Simulated assay, not measured.
Amino acid sequence: MSLLETRARTGALATVNPVAKLGVSALIAVPLILTLDPVSAAVALALEFVLFLFAGIGWREFWVRTWPVWLAAPLTGLTIALYGQTSGVVYVDWFVLRISEGSLALALATMLRVLAIALPSVVLFITVDPTDLADGLGQIVRLPARFVLGALAGLRMVGLFLDDWRALELARRARGVADRGRIRRFLGMAFALLVLSIRRGAKLATAMEARGFGAPGRRTWARESRFGAAEWLLLAVGAAISGIAVAAAVVTGAWNFILGPSA
């Protein structure tokens, strides 16, 4: 375990059940999906940063883990600014590009909404262990055990895929195969990894069936997944963030229900 992962597991949210983290992410995301305005997204984003302080991660790890979100949000806003719905004063009108007052406001709201929805999903799940999440989904949410355990086994294989890719690269380099042509080398390694993955998946499925993972009847679990006061408190915080963000948008008149007549 790396130093960053060790530090992240010391935060107040590190021991919270992953189901609660999944629930709070949904509580924050759903209201923001239903509206497209800068006020609700900005208020939710500001409150989320307060919640992130209890995640137990340093700023360096925060930027390392979330940089794709910070890159995608401005690109999404740029697209809306260039090709969004035109309203108000038109600043640029050239060929298919039309930048107006309305498209810029829509771009800002979209960018803030992307950040407010995506950042909690990334930050809260940094300390989530896949096995703990599977235990919670199976015992608390009551999802089918076959589905949960199959997804867990597949997720555990992701790390092996990376190791297999490096091993294939080193083996091909040692044999002098496909030293030239990056596209040819990539396609060859991808096909080899696909064949290896299918074989490994078949063996894993057979092994799980042999151990009774697909047997009918009520399943027992090695570890009990608890959902207590800390989990309910986190859900309450998520509901409060959503409520305050929606209330701020309604009070300021910025609320824009995208499924309504104003969409």
Rank of each mutant, 00 (worst) to 15 (best):
R180F: 04
L119W: 13
F186H: 02
D135I: 04
D93Y: 06
I183A: 13
G201F: 01
F147I: 14
L149H: 08
A72I: 11
W165C: 05
A190T: 04
V90L: 03
L71I: 14
A81T: 12
R156V: 11
Y83W: 12
G77F: 02
V96I: 14
F191D: 00
F186C: 07
Y91K: 05
F161P: 04
R166F: 08
L112T: 08
I117K: 06
V148L: 02
T86K: 08
R113E: 04
D179A: 08
W70E: 11
R156W: 08
L115S: 09
P68G: 14
L124S: 07
L155E: 12
P74F: 04
V89P: 02
F95H: 08
V64H: 05
T131A: 05
V96R: 10
R166E: 15
L152W: 05
G154E: 05
L108M: 03
Q85T: 11
L133T: 02
G154S: 09
V89C: 00
L119S: 07
A73G: 11
A73E: 08
I126H: 05
A178I: 02
P130H: 04
V195H: 01
L187K: 06
A145G: 06
M157V: 06
D129M: 03
A105L: 15
W67R: 09
A105C: 07
R166A: 15
V123A: 07
G150P: 09
F125V: 10
L143F: 15
D135G: 09
T66C: 15
V64P: 01
R180K: 13
R199M: 00
L119P: 09
L160P: 09
R199H: 00
F62G: 08
D135M: 06
R65L: 09
G181P: 11
V177I: 15
F125G: 10
R156T: 09
L143V: 12
A109G: 12
S103T: 10
P68K: 15
L75Q: 10
A145Q: 14
F191M: 00
